Simulated scan of single mutants.
Amino acid sequence: MRIVADKDVCVGAGQCVLTDPETFDQSEDDGTVILLAEHPGDEQKAREAVHVCPSQALSIEA
């Protein structure tokens, strides 16, 4: 499983960071997503983070 983050779509809501802080962080400049791990250790948390993203900036590739 691989996570893909589209920074152009991200609105900086931070839901991904709250859901899975080991995989996601936020830029201090504009609040957009920073991907800490393309291949997350906890796939369930990463899937939940993708699901709760309000701008749909996150996706999963097999």
Rank of each mutant, 00 (worst) to 15 (best):
L58K: 03
P40I: 00
A5C: 10
R47A: 15
I34T: 12
C16P: 11
A57L: 05
D6M: 04
A5M: 05
D29C: 04
Q56A: 13
H51Y: 13
R2E: 14
Q44V: 13
D6C: 03
Q26A: 15
V4I: 15
V9C: 07
F24K: 04
L36F: 00
C10V: 06
T23A: 04
R47I: 09
C10N: 10
I34V: 15
E48W: 02
D20P: 07
G31T: 12
R2G: 08
V11S: 06
A37Q: 10
P54K: 15
V17G: 01
Q56F: 03
L18Y: 08
E48H: 02
M1V: 07
P40E: 05
V4P: 02
I60P: 00
S27Y: 03
P54G: 09
R47H: 06
D20R: 02
T32K: 13
I60M: 12
R2Y: 05
K45M: 04
S27C: 13
L36D: 00
T19L: 01
K7H: 14
D8R: 05
V9L: 14
L58T: 02
E48V: 09
D42K: 11
V52G: 06
E43V: 14
E22M: 08
Q44C: 02
P21F: 01
G14E: 09
A62K: 15
Q44S: 15
A37R: 08
V11K: 08
G31F: 07
V17W: 01
H51K: 15
L18V: 06
E28G: 13
V4D: 07
L18Q: 14
D25I: 00
E22H: 06
V52D: 09
G12A: 07
A5E: 04
V4S: 10
R2N: 13
L58C: 03
D8C: 00
E61H: 12
T19Q: 12
S27R: 13
E38N: 11
Q26R: 14
K45V: 00
